[in-house]
Design a protein around this nucleic acid. Structure first.
Length: 370
DNA sequence: CAGCCGTGGTA
DNA sequence: TTACCAAGGCT
């Protein structure tokens, strides 16, 4: 088939579609307000972009609301204690983002006078801001004609131009295509329009081509092969790991916790003590890793949790301790009403819930019965 | 470059 | 139930 028969994709057509169908999002200045000169707050753009890295809009929304309520400006965030920010991030995943978020907020507040750099290069130099995020902030917050390439853009352009090169090698070509398409006028809206198109029309599974403003210029649609793009290499099977976690519960309901090492998996976050998580985990030797001698009993059903690169089966051991029990060095007891405020990743909440199902249930209100 | 780094929704 | 994957960055 001959690509010459297809018209070139028109950024103007995409912007016209965006004017009618832009999603309303908490961090976004819509096309109408944008036309009236309203610019988004770079702090909110940055915060949303970092949260949205490999994360769905649905998952991000409540976290964005909490963060902007707790810390309305970058100076507020820069002044916040690490533990408060990590606790607010708990459950969102990819925790190096939270550590870099803190470092970036402090760099902006203390090294840049509280003002975000307005250039791609300036933004790119900050922790947690890579090629995509720098381009996105430059375009959306500062109206710079940066070529924004994320997963949505890769998918849309791979289909429109029927890019046969597999990802990630195709990224260079797609970046050049996006640079050639990005308009000098409204580059921020253009970038957001591409993301909305990818998220709502040009979806991975069943694209709604009948509603697409670029249907007539899409090479993959012309060939009926939309879902074959972008081409990706096959993924390796996910390996299994095992481990044990110890949920020590004091008579007053407090749970024994510790801070995890700064680097690596769940780095800097809070957790219950346990063994390493390893492919050769031996359940019979788990008790040697318990934080102290106690009447440990194993919860019948282990916790199963899937990480990006392995599947974990976690044996849960629990033991009752006297109310006066002191925490071992490096540990602390977290009271029942304090538990939900700890920086606990989801897998740790699962582990604690397996041993004490009431741990994260909302406290019963006075004067009511269950 | 390729491996590491979370979580929850969807088909 | 398994598999895919969502506005990636760092080393």
């Amino acid at each position: 088939m001959s690509p010459a028969t297809l018209p070139a994709p028109s950024p103007a057509d995409l912007l016209a579609w965006y004017d009618r169908h832009a999603r309303t999002l908490p961090w976004r200045v819509g096309p109408k307000a944008g036309r009236n000169g309203t610019r988004p707050d770079p702090y909110r753009v940055w915060l949303s972009e970092v949260m949205l890295q490999q994360t769905t809009v649905t998952a991000v929304k409540p976290y964005f609301e909490t963060f902007t309520r707790n810390w309305p400006t970058v100076a507020d965030l820069a002044a916040a204690p690490d533990e408060a920010v990590l606790a607010a991030w708990a459950g969102l995943g990819y925790y190096s983002r939270a550590r870099n978020l803190i470092a970036c907020a402090r760099a902006v507040a203390f090294d840049h006078g509280g003002v975000f750099p307005d250039s791609e290069a300036g933004l790119r130099a900050l922790p947690g801001i890579g090629a995509y995020t720098a381009a996105a902030i430059a375009a959306i917050a500062f109206d710079r004609p940066a070529a924004v390439v994320d997963g949505n853009v890769e998918r849309v352009l791979a289909r429109v131009f029927a890019v046969e090169t597999p990802l990630p090698a195709a990224k260079r070509d797609i970046g050049r295509l996006q640079a050639s398409l990005t308009p000098a006028g409204r580059p921020g809206d253009y970038a957001q329009a591409m993301m909305d198109l990818g998220a709502t029309i040009c979806t991975p599974k069943r694209p709604a081509c009948v509603l697409c403003p670029w249907q007539a210029c899409c090479a993959a649609h012309a060939a009926g092969t939309e879902t074959l793009y972008p081409v990706r290499p096959a993924r390796a099977a996910k390996p299994e790991r095992g481990g044990a976690a110890f949920v020590a519960v004091r008579a007053d309901g407090a749970v024994l916790l510790a801070r995890r090492p700064e680097r690596g998996l769940l780095g800097g976050m809070t957790g219950v003590p346990g063994t390493e998580w390893a492919a050769d985990f031996d359940p019979d030797r788990a008790l040697a890793a318990a934080p102290f001698i106690a009447a440990w009993t194993r919860v019948p059903a282990p916790v199963v949790h899937v990480f990006t690169h392995f599947r974990l089966t976690l044996d849960i051991w629990t033991a009752p301790l006297p109310a006066a029990t002191r925490p071992p060095e490096g540990f602390w007891w977290s009271a029942p009403e304090a538990l939900s405020g700890e920086a606990l990743p989801s897998v740790m909440k699962k582990a604690i819930t397996a041993a004490m199902p009431e741990a994260f249930r909302p406290a019963p209100r006075k004067g009511r019965r269950a």
